[in-house]
């Protein structure tokens, strides 16, 4: 203790005759446990255990604050890294670096788990099943423990059984939702556009099959890390959704020609591996129906390649 101690001048228990017409308040000057406190101090520096606990708590809070600061700094670094003015030479090195990196875990991708199952809810119209999302669901299942459920919304009267089973058989553990890392809830509903809802308080719904496919592809690492390739992939996704699936005959023919051209240069649409572009384009192509005569050779070869990888197996029953 830096200060010296003086014994109290007057006794703590001074008796004063108080009038009875007023109410009593506890004495704010005298400490109720002043006696014991003095004793403690007199016993030369031995600290009260309560004080110790307080100190520990403070240390703990400070430690957590430091951790938090470190986390925020890390985040800030990733956000503020200038990538707009990267030159082409550094791009390739960045790409290889990213490729070697394992796909980050769900906590960093989707935010901290609050104890609830992270449930991805997809509202889809049974008149146009989102085939590409079903393929991505299959890929998600390979990487994570996914609880897949299919529901029918009351806005839809009947749904063919093949759509009810499109996410495969029920997981054996499906009775405990807590055992899963991710939920994939497909709701057949009368919606004009496909819709995905994830974290309702923090995130607006994502609309359109292509956009939802982008979201899911990030979880399975199917989106190219290299910015150029990612842009190309993005472009193919939009082309597939807007021109192949929803476009007129002329537009489709144009896309088929473009696909044929691109596939003449390599086995896959973007880069040397299967990417989101391949998944979405092949699904849209399969959904609109392909005849052997109208499909160019490169496209046919590529479609076979896609099917050989096995990812498309889950949507084959839906095409019949």
């Amino acid at each position: 203790m830096p200060m010296y101690q003086v014994k109290p001048i007057s006794g703590g228990d001074l008796k004063v005759d108080l009038p009875t017409c007023m109410y009593k308040l506890p004495n704010i000057h005298a400490q109720p446990d002043s006696g014991s406190c003095i004793d403690n101090l007199l016993q030369n520096g031995e600290v009260d255990p309560a004080l110790k606990a307080l100190e520990q708590r403070q240390d703990e809070i400070l430690r957590r604050l430091y951790e938090l600061k470190a986390a925020v700094d890390g985040l800030a670094k990733t956000v503020t890294t200038p990538d707009a003015d990267l030159d082409a030479t550094s791009l390739s090195s960045a790409a290889t670096m990213c490729a070697s990196k394992e796909v980050a875990d769900l906590d960093t991708l989707l935010g901290k788990d609050l104890g609830a199952l992270r449930d991805i809810v997809i509202n889809a119209n049974p008149s146009s099943p989102p085939l590409s999302l079903l393929v991505l669901h299959g890929l998600l299942c390979q990487r994570y423990r996914v609880l897949s459920t299919v529901h029918v919304h009351s806005s839809v009267s009947t749904v063919p059984p093949k759509l009810l089973n499109c996410l495969g058989p029920r997981h054996a553990d499906s009775y405990t939702r807590q055992r899963f890392q991710l939920g994939f809830t497909l709701i057949w509903k009368n919606v004009p556009r496909l819709q995905m809802k994830f974290s309702v308080p923090n995130m607006c719904p994502i609309e359109g099959e292509g956009n939802v496919a982008r979201f899911l592809s990030r979880l399975v690492g199917l989106e190219p890390q290299d910015p150029v390739a990612a842009t190309q992939s993005d472009s193919w996704v939009d082309t597939a959704v807007f021109q192949l699936a929803e476009g007129s005959g002329k537009e489709r023919a144009a896309v088929l020609r473009a696909l044929n051209g691109a596939l003449g240069r390599g086995p896959w649409l973007v880069g040397s591996e299967l990417s989101l572009a391949d998944v979405v384009c092949s699904c849209c192509l399969l959904q609109t129906g392909t005849s052997a005569t109208s499909t160019p050779a490169n496209v046919q070869r590529w479609l076979k390649g896609c099917q050989n990888l096995g990812h498309l197996a889950c949507i084959i029953p839906l095409l019949q």
Binding site: L117, T149, H151, V152, H153, S154, S155, T176, R177, Q178, I187
Partner: peptide
């Protein structure tokens, strides 16, 4: 509005 099968949350 409702879902079939019914949604079960924990």
């Amino acid at each position: 509005k409702f879902l079939e099968p019914t949604l079960r949350l924990e």
